[in-house]
Computed example of a mutant assay.
Amino acid sequence: MEKLELADITLTWLNGGVSRLDGGAMFGVVPKPLWSRKYEVNENNQIELRADPILIQTGGKNYLVESGLGNGKLTDKQKRNFGVTEESSVTESLKTLGLLPEDIDYVLMTHMHYDHANGLTVEKGGQFISVFPNATIVTSKIEWDEMRNPNIRSKATYWRQNWEPIQEQVETFEEEWNQGPLRMVHTGGHSNGHSILIIEAEEETVVHMADLMGTHAHQNVLWVMAYDDYPMDSIAAKQKWMQYAKEKNAWFTFYHDAVYRAIKLDEQGEICSSIKREKHTLSTK
């Protein structure tokens, strides 16, 4: 498992599953001849996407960013439509680190779409229960409200089995949530309640743009997903926070990227430092 160590903070990427989604949907109105130079695509126009939670350990606490694709919650039809080839093994990843799901203190949810929230619950004995029973689950109030009352578009990705069993564990915030070196900031864009995560550790800064910058190939502020509910808000948030990251010489971290776990960009927007995924084996099949 890949790690990023910053002063007294350690980030470790866990295995949350794999999907292959339509490249056109992931890059919106950007023409394929442009985006396909930046991110590998197969003959079915699919790109590989991870759903790998980040374990953050600092101050004696265990924080998990997102929860993975989960297990046993997708039908065969959904697996086919979403191109899912591997479900989550977060529990096994934690065990490798000497941890149990019960050891997670906080789960930080940038948003609650199925590919981020499926791993919050699991079916046991005919009912869904919390995977992280001792954790406080943090998300924006806007996101939490829509999760429970989705509209005609968002009901396809906000699922009752992902929120009902964990509702007593949820803590919401309006604009920002802060704890120690961690800060969640509501941005909107990808979803109305979407947030990003900022980590500040002495001289180092990490900006986790979540689905505003789903992969390293999305660094152009105009390259937003067709999945974004409010694309102009996504663009505005990318302009603001990518400039902030540039001023801080920050690391960008990823949940979905199949190639990089984290990157730094130089003045020209080129990758100057990176942590690659060790088992990067993009397939064209």
Rank of each mutant, 00 (worst) to 15 (best):
E2Y: 07
A7P: 01
I9M: 11
T12W: 03
W13E: 09
W13Q: 10
L14N: 04
D22L: 15
P31E: 13
P31C: 09
P33E: 13
P33K: 13
L34A: 11
V41C: 11
Q46Y: 06
L49Y: 07
A51G: 03
A51C: 10
I54E: 08
G60F: 01
E66C: 06
G70W: 11
N71P: 00
K73C: 08
N81R: 10
N81T: 02
G83A: 10
T85E: 13
E87R: 10
E92T: 12
S93N: 09
L94N: 05
K95P: 00
T96Q: 10
T96A: 06
L100N: 14
P101R: 10
E102W: 00
E102I: 04
T110D: 09
H116A: 13
G119D: 13
L120V: 13
V122M: 11
G125L: 03
Q127L: 04
V131H: 01
F132G: 07
N134F: 00
S140M: 14
E146V: 10
N149P: 05
S154E: 15
A156G: 04
Y158L: 12
W163H: 12
I166T: 05
M184H: 07
V185M: 04
G188K: 12
G189T: 14
H190S: 06
S191W: 10
N192M: 05
L197Y: 08
I198Y: 03
I199L: 14
E204H: 12
V206L: 14
V206F: 12
V207I: 15
H208V: 08
L212W: 07
G214K: 06
T215R: 07
H216C: 04
Q219C: 01
V221S: 08
Y227N: 11
D229Y: 10
Y230D: 07
D233C: 00
D233A: 08
A236R: 15
W241Y: 15
M242W: 00
Q243L: 05
K246R: 12
N249C: 01
F252R: 01
V259P: 00
I263S: 01
I263P: 02
E267W: 01
G269E: 05
I271A: 01
E278G: 06
